[in-house]
Nucleic acid binder design. Structure first.
Lengths: 203, 203
DNA sequence: CTTGACATAGAACGCATGTTCTGGTATAAT
DNA sequence: ATTATACCAGAACATGCGTTCTATGTCAAG
């Protein structure tokens, strides 16, 4: 993005604040009043410049038809429940769930996401604490190196580890490089989802 | 919020998606076309109902004057640089920095926040991995139990731990409950900020 | 002195859009 | 049979709003 002049920055800032406050963009007249200009044609002039610089997009002849291109892009993800080593697999049919609001700076891809809250400290060798939120993506097969939620059928236990198929066995590698990997038979493994991100509330 | 009828849910869903896609709300005519209704007065009727149920707010006689009350609320935080055990304290004067977009579901309070990317695995006993992002808040003094970025002057080293003043010494408690705490003299400690959240990109 | 960029000013025009009023159907509960 | 609720339909009206054209001033660079 080319740099903006002082007046352009002011206009962009005004529009951003207006949208935050009101939920919809301002009219040219509202911008004119807000920036203490005497004419709407000056507003149009600056909006054209912001458009040329790739900062906004305008829908022609459309009241409030201004879109910020560097606008905020959050989205919501269902927080379906909890994950712990010893619990039953998560049920995805629950329709009465919380949601958490994420952004592309937390998780790039948005398809098929859900979140789970970690219960207990059994995930600590994945550097995941009790109470952390893991953002998952629905996925029943994994590629080598992906971190997944894996259910070990013989132990009736779920763990979060990096998954490496190695011939006749699977290596499950903890995130903490100082902890030894686990080796299991492929038939013993059920992949419940791929870990996309972890969020920890501290304060 | 009282429960919505089927048609009201459809309308709310349409408006939410439209705003996500376009950056501004739809007109009555756009809603009418989107929901395959034959008249704008029906759109007005349902919008009135959504308003009564406290789901939207409308500015009377205002094109696109619809505000979602459960709207998305993200904000941006400067990503000022890196934090590692052995580096110099972070400079806050850098004006040419990235930003990351967060939401109130990641960090409730928004004042005085900045983010740092962790470099190296020296924070592992705080359950923080190389590459993780810590969201900090400017704060030069800490209360007992808060997790802070602490600089140990004699070792010229920065660490993230929970801070407990205990009379003539300070206890620095790792997040990992299986790791022993560190005891230091209060004069040796310089608090650089309070840890608010940790974000790990996995995939 | 000329040119280009930035900022500014106002009149005029034409289209975009919200709201009200009157009227109807279907279903469920009383 | 009546009432209430949800959903629906269309005409008419009035206001909200974007854009163009013509014009001017200041400052910096060549």
């Amino acid at each position: 993005m080319r740099s903006l002049s002082q007046r352009q920055k002011e206009m962009l800032s005004f529009i951003t604040a207006f949208i935050s406050e009101n939920g919809y963009p301002p009219t040219h007249e509202q911008i004119r009043q807000g920036l203490k200009m005497s004419t709407k044609s000056l507003v149009n002039h600056h909006l054209k410049a912001l458009e040329r610089k790739g900062v906004i997009e305008r829908e022609p002849e459309t009241p409030r038809g201004i879109k910020l291109l560097d606008g905020l892009r959050s989205f919501k993800v269902p927080l379906l429940g909890q994950i712990a080593a010893s619990e039953e697999p998560i049920s995805f049919t629950d329709s009465d769930y919380e949601e958490i609001e994420l952004t592309p700076d937390i998780v790039k891809e948005q398809d098929g996401l859900y979140a789970l809250r970690v219960k207990g400290d059994s995930m600590i060798d994945a550097l995941i604490n009790d109470g952390d939120i893991v953002v998952m993506r629905h996925q029943a097969v994994a590629e080598g190196g992906e971190m997944v939620a894996v259910r070990l059928k013989d132990r009736n236990e779920t763990t979060l580890k990096r998954f490496y198929p190695e011939g006749k066995r699977v290596r499950l590698q903890p995130a903490n490089s100082r902890v030894e990997p686990v080796f299991v038979h492929p038939a013993n493994v059920e992949i419940q989802g791929k870990v996309m991100a972890v969020i920890r509330h501290v304060a």
